[in-house]
Amino acid sequence: MLTKEQIAKRIAKEVENGQYINLGIGIPTLVANYIPAHLEIVLQSENGLLGIGPFPKESAVDPDLINAGKQTITLLPDSALFDSAQSFAMIRGGHVHLTILGAMEVSEHGDIANWKIPGKMVKGMGGAMDLVASAKNIIVAMQHCSKDGQSKLLPECALPLTGIRCVKKIVTDLAVLEIAPEGGFILKERAPNVSIEEIKSKTAGKLIILGEVPEMQFN
């Protein structure tokens, strides 16, 4: 099965030249490290920044420059700064081409749950609901199963939803899957040395297999 870095590396292959991209906290932020250098893309930070630079050197830490995860960052020469209403106008208005975020559960219809565990964890949804309701393309990065071995790819989400019928593609530590228009997880790729049987046994929702399922490539 894949490490978090490998999941991020595989998702980076989905990025296209010229895209404006929003990366959620967790595994999605790692995707930035693997986007091929020759691709021209711009990262959008929901708190009001286009063009997120690398983490600063110790001497250049600036408390007025943070990303959506509240980590200190730097600007790029061609960055742009704006307020929160502008930021979400950009997001809601469909100007962000690609959104990559984590999930607790995804349903076979593309519903996503990633913000609340009733009675246990209620941190809030932040910008997630706006992002999933508006982005042109939504890719989820997540573990195939929870820590106690339960499948996170379900017929229906049990946890409170973040959005409905919005996820297009999922990359887990075991597989790359796409949501079928009629419902179901289409198995597109297997992680190296992971069998279809294992993926089937760990996918509670409907798994659709169309012919050969190749292994993921990482070049």
Binding site: E46, S87, F88, A89, I91, R92, M125, G127, D130, A133
Partner: peptide, 24 residues
């Protein structure tokens, strides 16, 4: 939702009593 929060505040200052959003 953060975008809804931002827009509710913006609308408040801009004289827009209510609006429609897909978030949520």
């Amino acid at each position: 939702p953060q975008g809804t929060l931002a827009e509710r505040i913006r609308a408040g200052g801009a004289g827009i009593p209510a609006f429609f959003t897909p978030a949520g």
